[in-house]
Simulated assay, not measured.
Amino acid sequence: MAHAADTDALPTGDALNRTIASLDTKVFDAFNTCDMKTFGDYFSDDVEFYHDKGGVQHSREAVVEATRKNICHKVRRELVGTLEVYPIKDYGAIEMGTHRFCQMDTGKCEGMGKFMNIWRYQNGQWQMTRVVSYDHHAIDTGK
Rank of each mutant, 00 (worst) to 15 (best):
Arg76Asn: 13
Glu84Val: 13
Ala5Phe: 11
Glu65Phe: 04
Met128Ile: 14
Met96Asn: 03
Thr98Gly: 04
Trp126Arg: 01
Thr106Met: 07
Gly142Lys: 03
Lys74His: 04
Lys89Gly: 05
Phe28Thr: 04
Ser44Asn: 07
Val56Lys: 06
Phe28Ser: 03
Gly113Asn: 09
Leu83Ser: 07
Tyr42Pro: 14
Asp90Gly: 01
Gln127Val: 04
Asp140Cys: 13
Gly97Thr: 13
Ala93Glu: 00
Thr12Met: 00
Lys69Pro: 10
Lys74Arg: 09
Thr106His: 02
Gly124Ser: 03
Asp24Ile: 08
Asp105Ser: 11
Gly40Thr: 02
Tyr91Lys: 00
Cys109Lys: 01
Lys89Ser: 08
Ala62Phe: 08
Leu16Asp: 09
Pro87His: 03
Thr7Phe: 03
Ala15Lys: 00
Asp105Tyr: 05
Thr141Pro: 12
Phe43Asp: 15
Thr141Val: 11
Glu48Asp: 11
Glu110Asp: 12
Phe49Tyr: 07
Asp24Val: 05
Thr106Lys: 01
Pro87Cys: 05
Ala15Met: 05
Lys37Gln: 08
Thr33Tyr: 02
Arg60Ala: 07
Asp24Asn: 06
Leu23His: 08
Tyr121Cys: 13
Asp6Ile: 00
Asp29Arg: 02
Asp8Glu: 14
Phe43Val: 10
Thr19Lys: 06
Thr38Pro: 13
Tyr121His: 13
Leu23Gly: 07
Tyr121Trp: 07
Met36Ala: 10
Gly107Met: 05
Phe31Val: 02
Leu83Gln: 03
Thr141Gln: 11
Leu16Glu: 08
Met112Ala: 09
Glu95Pro: 05
Glu95Ser: 03
Cys72His: 04
Gly81Phe: 02
Tyr121Asn: 09
Thr67Lys: 05
Thr7Glu: 09
Arg100Pro: 01
His51Asn: 08
Gln127Leu: 04
His3Tyr: 07
Glu61Leu: 15
His73Pro: 14
Phe43Ala: 08
Val27Asp: 08
Gln127Met: 05
Phe31Ser: 01
Thr38Asp: 09
His99Ser: 12
Thr33Ser: 13
Gly111Ala: 14
Gly124Asn: 04
Phe28His: 06
Arg130Gly: 00
Val132Leu: 14
His73Ile: 06
Gly13Ala: 06
Leu23Gln: 09
Met36Ile: 13
Glu65Thr: 10
Ile88Glu: 01
Thr129Phe: 03
Ala15Phe: 00
His136Lys: 02
Asn123Met: 11
His73Met: 12
Asp45Cys: 14
Val47Glu: 07
Phe115His: 02
Arg120Gln: 04
Glu65Asp: 13
Glu61Trp: 09
Met96Ala: 05
Phe115Trp: 06
Arg130Asp: 07
Met96Lys: 01
Leu23Ser: 09
Ala15Arg: 00
Gly40Arg: 01
Glu110Lys: 07
Cys72Trp: 06
Glu95Met: 01
Thr98Ser: 07
Tyr50Gly: 00
Met112Ser: 15
Glu61Asp: 15
Ile139Phe: 04
